[in-house]
Computed example of a mutant assay.
Amino acid sequence: MTQLKPHHLKYFTVCLILIFSSIASAELLVAKQKFETENFNTFNGKTIKKVQVGWESYGQLNPQKDNVILVTHYFSASSHAAGKYTKDDPQAGYWDALIGPGKAIDTNRFFVISVDSLANLGAYDPNVITTGPATINPDTGKPYGLDFPVVTIRDFVNIQKLVLESLGIEKLHGVIGASMGSMQAIDWASAYPDWVPRMVSIIGSAQSDAWTTSLLERWAIPIRLDPNWRNGNYYGHTPPTEGLIAALMFITQDALTPMAFNQVGQTASVNHNPLELDPLQSITARYSITNWLRERAQQRAKLSDANHLLYLTRASQLFITGHGANLTSGLQTIQAKTLFIPSGNDLLLMPYLSQEANQALLDLGKVSQLEKLTGDSGHLNGVSGISEKALKIKEFIEQ
C-alpha cells in the first residue's frame, strides 16, 4: 500500500473539506433577525436615538455560550455570510464555501454570527436591516441625510457587542472578517481583548494609511459631483444614481486585477478591442468592457444608497486599530493570536498593509502569522478564492 506523504495528505484533506462543503451547502437555510437599541452613543460623541440592525446565525449556541465565532462583513456585503434564505435562492452567502456543517468554520461545532453594519450599502435590499442616512430621523420625521452622525469601525464593533450581549454572550471563540470586516475584526481584538482569543484578518488592514485614504476618496467623488446629490438631501427627489453607479464601477475594478479584468475583455460577450467602432466614431460612446462594468454597477445601485456609500467610505478612511493616537498603542492591547491572509495581488488593500500589521504585532511580542492568497482575482480573492486557505483557517480557529 502506497504511503501518503504529508503534502499529499494535506491536499487530500482540503479536497474532503470542499467535497463535504458542497454536499452540506444546500442544507443550510437561514433567517434574518433584528436587533434594536436606543440612544446609541457613537465614537465621536453623538447619539442615535434608535438603531436597528439585522443579524444572522449559523449553528447552535452551546449551554456555556463559549463557541461563538463572529464574522464581520466587508464594505458592500451584509450579514448574509452563508447559507440561503430559501432553497430556491440563486446565490448563497458570500462565504458559503467556508461556513457550514463540516466546513472550515464548522457549524456543527460553532455558533457563527454576523451583523449588518450601520449605514449598510444595501439600504434598499429587503434582506438588510440597517440604520443610516436613509433612515427616518425620529426628531424630524424625514430621512437623516447628512444629519446622521459620522460613524466609525468602532461603532460597528460596539453595535455587534450589544447584539452578542443581548444573547447572553460574554466572550468570543474568535472573530474573522474580510476587507472592511478585517478592520472590525482587529479593532475587536484591540478594544475588547478579553473577548477575543483568536482573530483572522483577510485581505485586510490595521489602519487606513495616506495611500488607502486617497484611493477610497475616489469612491466618494462621483457622488458629490452628481447634481442630484443635493448635499445629501436627495430623499424625495431624484437620487444621484449616476454618481452612485460611477462609484460602484470604481469599487468593482479596484477589487480586481488587470489579469482578471482582461479575461473578461476576452470573452465573446465583451470582445474588447482598442479600435471598437462606436468609440472610434463618437466621443460619447462607451467601450464594451466599460458597458460590462456599468451594467453590473447599475444592478447593484438598485439596492444601494449613495449617502450610505459615503458613510462607509469615511468609516474606512477613519480607521486605525484601537482608534487612538497611533497604531502601536492600538496593537499593544491585543491579546489574541492573530492570522493575516492578504491577497498577493490585491490592488485595493495591498498586501503590505497586512504585512506591516503582522510584523508590528511580532515586534510587540504578540503571537501572529501571515499567509498569502495566490489567486488571480486581487482583492476579490478574499471572497471568491477563500477556499484556498480553508484548511489553514480551520486549523487556526480550532487550536
Rank of each mutant, 00 (worst) to 15 (best):
T72A: 09
H237V: 06
Q355T: 15
D376A: 15
S201K: 04
T374Q: 11
N233L: 11
L121E: 01
I23H: 03
V30M: 13
V51L: 03
S387D: 12
E36P: 00
K87L: 15
N291S: 10
Q91M: 09
V270N: 03
D187W: 02
S190W: 03
H8K: 10
L248H: 06
A260I: 04
N158K: 07
L339S: 05
D125A: 13
A31D: 14
A104E: 00
S288Y: 03
W219L: 12
G365E: 05
P101G: 10
H379R: 00
N231C: 01
S114E: 02
K161L: 12
L172M: 12
G100L: 08
L70T: 05
V150E: 09
I105T: 00
S208C: 14
G145W: 07
V157M: 00
A390Q: 10
V53Y: 07
H323T: 08
N158T: 05
L4A: 13
S368W: 03
Q3E: 12
D254Y: 10
G243S: 05
A246G: 07
K50Y: 09
P143W: 13
R198M: 05
T212E: 14
V128E: 01
F35T: 11
H272D: 09
T284R: 12
Y235W: 12
T13R: 10
W292I: 06
P133F: 10
A285C: 09
I19L: 14
A247I: 00
G168I: 06
S354A: 13
D194S: 11
V383H: 02
I397F: 14
M259R: 11
N273D: 12
L310E: 01
K5F: 09
Y58C: 08
E395A: 15
G45N: 08
F20P: 01
L146K: 12
I245K: 05
S368G: 03
I113W: 00
V383C: 06
K366V: 01
S79W: 05
W55Q: 04
P63H: 13
